[in-house]
Design a protein around this nucleic acid. Structure first.
Length: 931
RNA sequence: GGGCGGUUAGCUCAGUCGGUCAGAGCGCCUCGCUUACACCGAGGAUGUCACUGGUUCGAGUCCAGUACCGCCCACCA
């Protein structure tokens, strides 16, 4: 046993504890401190790797907590529990951060060049990775740091190459020119998921295109009724890339123009008027300009009609290749000038504000441009089908279940995944091109020796300059971290993993891709359960973000309130998939709870009978030495074990903390300790009895510390060190065994409920009557014979808790009131279950008004009891209820009716007695009215 | 345009199988420094479980619809 400081100071407690865990090597499932049961299957949780260049925010802390609590729980249950930590290189996100830093130095990707840029990135990420890892340790992550992985380490690099090669070999990776979303700021393509549809008010311009006289090849004269056709656009600069004008096939207005040609202004290109179903005749003019290289719909239209696809936007979104003066201008400058020029020519038919959805870059917020690029794609159809099969068959379960519908919808409508990124930071795509255009994909670290098609030597091959979408390497995470593609011991032992915990916001980005790639490459679903956490929001319910300035730094919170409080706060009252607001109140509540636990333990430790060796082995409480309160306490602890087990099995972590908070605070501390105090201080009891009482406290406390450990690991570990252990216990709580649910004693629990109810009732009555709390008042209690022994053992505690002196026990209700002289002003009556008490008031504080107040109180209680009683009776009088409700429910209703009737009866009696002694004439009080 | 979630005490939220489910924390009010804890203890007040209808012996809970708030998905220039 170790001493506990008087005050609970999280900083001191937590710092020392983590070092002890590390020293004991208990985090690794195969570490020297592991106590795993070899007969149980392992439990594997691969951490969603946080961005290496990021900083830990509250969301990370919350996820780490949930992950860690699952791991700790599994570990205590005896499973070899692997919590594999990691970091993500976060391709585009990291580049975005570094680019901004470089910009402040007047540098850029271009000025540095690829090699120096990547060198800077490595230096930068090396400096931030330590911060990220240290933060996780502060939160208490019991991760196996020896297995720490990084999406840019050699193992991941190898996995990425092999995975891609296999996908290519199986026809699931292909290279093609396609319309992709391009971010001019990041200078890369982004996936559909990274496009943020943003509502904006733009402008819809109407532009006249001049028809061409086929005979002369010149524009038809303005006098001709069909001199022009008017099209509408929100992006006039794309006019420069137009290769057709389309109308709906059924549109009578334009039918006669179909097949004619119009001249695209500035580029002076003559393009056909075509028909296509994509056109909505009701929108705008019903005629649509077609820009196949810069619009999704137009691209599809272009493909259907075999239209040319001139690209007019450069990587930086300046105009290019148009042969017009607009070349070299930024897209928006070009737009302005182009509109002005059209207006000057008289070809601007109109402009009006237009509500529209603009695609913006998730990272840089730039407006994205659809454009053609030759990129690598992953064919998703077959993999998505397998992923759906895994969830439909139940091999993988998504929690909360409602997200399975989202999952279904997305995977059934999935499009091929563009994995090429024109970034530098990431895994280079292992594809080489020979001068003849042959493609060679190779998993070799040094690339292929020769072109796979024509045999040209490596020296003549050029590797694809692009890198993979960062989610490609993340998608391999559950198995690449365990050694895949090598057939390692870890992979065999820990794969498939048990639970994947992550935020619901990346279910598509990440979970779906892990699932697809895992099934494709390992033939197994990578995890059996997906636990989706909700998002942490600020106290106003807003998403936390740096730009809003409402981010909470978890380290600040930990410094102030402790990691245990933070962990408890983010778990307490939270439900899977449900966002939660986080504010100071929750945190304070959690810290208070830790403090409560600390002080309760300090009391137990300090209350040790001198006859017990502080350094001795823990003794099981001797049942013969236990009083009803101690047996009740142990029964309740068993009940809590049972309830917590059920909640854990349901992944209802908020329920777990609620159960423990209630059990520890409202049962163990409020009643268990209070009853025990009296008993431990009772010199009349035998030494063995006091010892038994203390061992019972230790037993219950030990159980609660174990149950609470996964959520509040530091404080429980520290406190556990202060209580005696069993010979079978390990040195540290983190590897101690999860408690088993022992027997309950329902009858005893009911008796204690009555006793506790009586104490509460007496306190309540005394408080309402305005009686000095410290005044000792003569109190009588009628106790049915079966409860006699319990009452007698608890008598000293009841005396103390109710300030009753003398406390006299009566065998029947009728006997109440005989033991002391009723005094003017009346006595207080309290009914709790089968117990009934009368508190006699001191003469000097009694007055007629007090009697009236007591009557009012009793009448209020009577009224309430009568309402409940009549409701219960109405139920029993309902034939259909009697006929159709289950027997157990009917029996319960009968019992309730009996109890309520009894209570009403007693309250009436007490009211009569109170009225009678008061002598104010109101002797017949039946509770109908309140004075 | 589809889909999902939320609506329960002044605030933030739990509420699993339909039957002691009207709950917690915070806040508020009244007391109290009783030898674990003032980061505490004792007591108290506060509800049309958003609305409408339905199923059921019985609905905060299941079904349908409505309203408001929020999120996700979606190629209308």
């Amino acid at each position: 046993m170790t001493d506990l400081p008087k005050a609970y100071t999280p900083r001191e407690v937590e710092g020392a504890i983590y070092e002890r865990w590390l020293a004991a090597d208990v985090f690794a499932p195969d570490g020297v401190g592991s106590t795993a049961d070899p007969d149980l299957p392992p439990f594997t949780l691969i951490q969603p790797p946080p961005n290496v260049t990021g900083s830990l925010h509250l969301g990370h802390a919350q996820r780490t907590t949930v992950e860690d609590l699952m791991v700790r729980h599994a570990r205590m249950r005896g499973h070899a529990a692997l919590f594999l930590p990691g970091l993500d290189h976060a391709g585009i996100a990291a580049q975005f951060v570094l680019d901004r830093m470089l910009a402040k130095e007047g540098e850029s990707r271009q000025t540095l060049g690829r090699e120096r840029y990547l060198e800077r990135m490595r230096t930068f990420s090396d400096s931030t990775r330590h911060v990220m890892l240290a933060q996780q340790r502060r939160v208490g992550a019991s991760a196996d740091w020896g297995r720490l992985r990084y999406t840019m380490d050699d193992g991941s690099a190898h996995a990425v190459r092999v995975a891609f090669e296999r996908l290519y070999r199986d026809g699931l990776a292909y290279r093609t020119e396609a319309l992709i979303s391009w971010c001019p700021g990041c200078r890369t393509s982004v996936s559909d998921l990274e496009v943020v549809p943003t509502p904006e008010t733009g402008t819809l311009w109407s532009v006249r295109y001049h028809l061409i006289d086929e005979a002369t090849g010149r524009p038809v004269p303005a006098s001709d009724p069909d001199a022009t056709i008017t099209v509408a656009t929100t992006r006039p600069e794309t006019i420069l890339g137009d290769t057709a004008v389309a109308v709906h096939p059924d549109d009578e207005r334009y039918r006669h123009l179909v097949g004619r040609r119009v001249r695209i202004p500035f580029v002076e290109r003559d393009v056909p008027i075509i028909v296509d179903d994509v056109v909505d005749p009701a929108f705008g003019t019903g005629a649509v300009k077609i820009t196949p290289a810069h619009d999704v719909d137009d691209h599809a239209t272009g493909l259907r009609h075999g239209l040319p696809t001139p690209t007019i936007l450069a990587d930086d979104a300046t105009i290019e290749n148009t042969g017009t003066p607009f070349d070299g201008l930024d897209r928006y400058e070009a737009r302005r000038r182009l509109v002005a020029e059209l207006d000057a020519r008289g070809d601007l038919a109109g402009e009006r504000p237009h509500e529209m959805i603009v695609g913006r870059c998730q990272r840089s917020n730039d407006v994205l441009e659809p454009r053609l690029k030759t990129q690598w794609f992953i064919r998703t159809e077959s993999m998505a089908a397998r992923a759906l099969d895994a969830t439909r068959s139940g091999r993988t379960r998504i929690l909360p279940e409602r997200f399975e519908r989202t999952w279904e919808h997305w995977l059934t409508n999935i499009r091929d995944w563009n994995v090429s990124r024109q970034l530098w930071w990431g895994h280079r795509i292992p594809a080489w091109y020979c001068p003849l255009g042959h493609v060679t994909v190779s998993a070799e670290a040094d690339g292929p020796a020769a072109c796979a098609t024509c045999g040209r030597p490596a020296a003549e091959l050029a590797q694809d300059p692009d890198v993979f979408d960062t989610w490609f390497s993340s998608g391999l995470w559950p198995f690449s971290t365990l050694g895949w593609p090598n057939d390692t011991d870890d992979l065999r032992r820990y794969y498939p993993t048990s639970v994947m915990e992550t935020g619901y916001d990346i279910i598509f980005f990440w979970v779906a891709r892990m699932m697809m790639l895992g099934l494709q490459l390992t033939d197994q679903a990578p995890f059996h359960t997906v636990y989706l956490s909700g998002l942490i929001r600020d106290p106003e319910g807003r998403k936390m973000s740096k730009t809003k300035g409402n981010v909470v730094d978890p380290l600040g919170v930990i410094d102030e309130s402790g990691a245990d409080a933070l962990r408890f706060a983010v778990v307490h009252g939270a439900a899977a998939g449900q966002d939660q607001r986080f504010g100071p109140a929750k945190l304070e509540n959690a810290r208070n709870f830790a403090n409560k636990l600390w002080n309760a333990t300090r009391f137990v430790v300090g209350a040790r009978p001198a006859s017990i060796d502080p350094d001795g082995e823990r003794q099981p409480p001797d049942p013969r030495q236990l009083g009803p309160a101690e047996r009740w306490m142990l029964s309740r602890a068993n009940a809590t074990v049972d309830a917590v087990d059920r909640a854990m099995a349901d992944y209802a972590f908020g329920e777990v903390t609620r159960l423990l908070y209630d059990a520890i605070w409202n049962e163990f501390c409020d009643w268990g300790l209070e009853f025990a105090k009296v008993r431990l201080a009772d010199d009349e009891l035998e030494e063995a009895t006091r010892e038994g009482t203390w061992w019972a406290l230790v037993e219950a406390l030990d159980t609660y510390l174990r149950l609470l450990h996964p959520v509040m690991p530091f404080v429980t570990e520290a406190l556990w060190a202060a209580i005696p252990h069993r010979s079978s216990d390990p040195a540290l709580l983190i590897v101690a065994r999860w408690p088993g649910a022992g027997p309950r004693d329902a009858g005893l629990e009911a008796e204690l409920d009555a006793v506790i109810g009586l104490v509460r009732g007496v306190r309540n009555a005394r408080a309402e009557a305005g009686i000095e709390p410290r005044a000792w008042l003569p109190t009588e209690v009628s106790v049915p014979a079966p409860m006699g022994p319990t009452f007698e053992v608890l008598r000293p505690a009841i005396e103390r808790l109710t300030h009753a002196r003398p406390l006299q026990r009566r065998l029947t209700r009728e006997a109440l009131g005989d033991g002391a002289q009723p005094v003017a002003g009346g006595a207080l009556s309290v009914i709790s279950g089968e117990l009934e008490a009368i508190v006699h008031r001191p003469t000097d504080t009694a007055d007629p008004a007090a009697g009236a107040a007591e009557r009012a109180r009793l009448e209020r209680e009577l009224g309430e009891a009568e309402r409940h009683l009549s409701a219960a009776r109405a139920r029993l009088a309902n034939d259909e209820f009697m006929a159709k409700a289950p027997d157990a429910v009917v029996a319960g209703a009968r019992a309730r009716e009996t109890a309520l009737a009894e209570q009403v009866d007693r309250l009436r009696d007490r009211l009569d007695a109170t009225g009678g002694t008061q002598g104010t004439g109101g002797t017949g009080g039946t509770g109908g009215e309140t004075a």
